[in-house]
Amino acid sequence: MDIQKRIEELEEALKKELENVKTMNDLQNVKSKFLGKKAEISGFMKHMKDLSNDEKPAFGKKVNEGKQRLSALIEEKREALRKAAIEEKLRQETIDVTLDAPDFTPGGVHILNRIVEEIEDIFVGMGYKIKEGPEIETDEMNFEKLNLPKDHPARDMQDSLYITEELLLRTHTSPVQVRTMLEYGGKKPVKIICPGKVYRRDDDDATHSHQFLQIEGLVVDKNTTMSDLKGTLNTIAKAMFGEEREIRLRPSYFPFTEPSVEVDVTCANCAGEGCNICKQTGYIEILGAGMVNDFVLKESGYDPKIYQGFAFGLGIERVAMLKYGIEDIRHFYTNDLRFNTQFK
């Protein structure tokens, strides 16, 4: 028998059978048939005894090589089956990648509080502390200590909501400044901002709200100047409205500051050229400021011969309306989620 030829025939037969193998089980059966104990190739070694000693090594080698080739064919098939199985499993896991994801949309901080936080951060960066105070204030703190005695015409500027003769809803956050100065005892420099809700007797409409948010700032030290005020406000205006914005100061009147100014920023819409938003002036009023009136320093325990300072105040709603082009102040307090969720 030509052993070489027979092995080649077996190889061909195996290849043929493997073509029909679909499962690992089939493969195991085929493997037993071609390489098992009862397989034909396993019987070849019996012929060894009929061979001469010279022929034996060559015969043995051929049989072993034949076994290895059969075995390789089976392993090759096994690998192919394994891969096919994995691919099939993955195919079954096919998804529509365009389907909607679960909704994990974050909510958001109210736009007014976001702006408050933004302004707080700018000032904290410049060394300010943040002070808060009660919204139900005494007439003394809200008005009298701020150089607004009863019957003062400027009380008209902020028609107030009284609770009793002596208690009212604060009309500005200035009483927090007084409280802070009193707390500091007239001894150390003051550098604070005071955010918070304030109230005025106004009917709500597109530009008026009986409740609104304000931030006031106060710096008191031995050499605090009006130029420091101007530099500070310029910094803030640029940080809030953009580097290219400029401010301008106009004389004004507040009983608690002297000199007093109102501060305009160049209109972002027309870059100072004049448009409807700025009523053709090229400027938009953003805040009021001034040097602290000596009366207020005295009432708050600071000696005006030693100390001087500046104060400023701005309305948060106004800033938000300018920044985002919001046309109606009532939107901030309606809390329609279609409005609130726009500011992420």
Binding site: G127, K129, K230, G231, T232, T235, P251, P259
Partner: peptide, 25 residues
Amino acid sequence: IEEIGRLKDFNELPDTLPSTVSIGS
């Protein structure tokens, strides 16, 4: 001072920052 400031124009003042050194927080 207000009269002087307004007639000289407040906008002519330099831009400086307070010299008060403090930690903001």
